[in-house]
């Protein structure tokens, strides 16, 4: 076979080979094997909190980026709000809410990229856990697992109280937990660094 006849075959093979730096699939850790530690006495840092935080069983790392979540997750939808902020819905499958979360990227990022720092990461289902706390947990369990929050906002919303945890070094918000006032159950967990 002449070399020139091989060229299209070689070109096809090259095109089929993924050249992009797509990350590996991160292993999902079963719930009973996830890391749970005693809350630090003087509060959390973003790094410490990330180590005990899991999304869909995948252990988070600081800073949270889409690349750090692995190639199982992609951007499914995006919503632009009136103030110009964009909220992205990420997950494995648009048909499944089990592995679905919403994110906001760091301020000033013109467009989301795999390495853009995620400043807000929240979900309306039970797929986010922070030191063993998931949606549906009791408010006493929250304080037991994460320590006393830096602030509790009872006034901004009628239905929920917002427990806020700040980074002990930077003073930035690293965790917000919405607790339903009526029954004391966690309804939304929002991680981040904002």
């Amino acid at each position: 076979m002449k070399i020139r006849k091989l060229i299209p075959i070689i070109m096809c093979a090259l095109c089929l080979t993924a050249c992009a730096d797509i990350p590996e699939v991160r292993e999902s850790i079963p719930e009973d094997e996830q890391t749970v530690i005693a809350p630090p006495e003087n509060g959390w840092t973003a790094e410490e909190l990330a180590k005990v935080s899991y999304f869909d069983g995948v252990q988070l790392s600081y800073p949270i980026t889409l690349r750090s979540l692995g190639s199982a997750y992609g951007v499914l939808l995006d919503f632009k709000s009136s103030d110009g902020d964009t909220t992205y819905s990420i997950g494995k499958d648009i048909m499944s809410l089990d592995n679905y979360a919403n994110i906001r990227a760091s301020d000033g990022a013109a467009e989301l990229s795999p390495d853009t720092e995620i400043t807000e990461f929240w979900s309306y289902s039970e797929n986010i856990s922070v030191n063993g706390i998931k949606m549906g947990a009791d408010k006493d369990a929250v304080i037991l697992a994460l320590g006393e929050p830096d602030s509790i906002d009872d006034t901004s919303y009628d239905v929920v109280s917002v427990y806020t945890y700040l980074d002990r070094n930077t003073g930035r918000t690293i965790l917000e937990i919405n607790v339903i006032k009526e029954n004391g159950c966690v309804t939304v967990i929002s991680l981040g660094d904002k």
């Binding site: 095109c15 089929l16 050249c19 730096d21 992609g74 989301l112």
Partner: peptide
């Protein structure tokens, strides 16, 4: 996988389309 996923991770859009054409 969706084309936009590969483009998101920095692949050339043309190469991605050629790849889907071959497939």
């Amino acid at each position: 996988g969706e084309k936009k996923f590969f483009e998101f991770y920095g692949e050339n859009a043309f190469v991605v389309r050629i790849r889907f054409f071959i497939m």
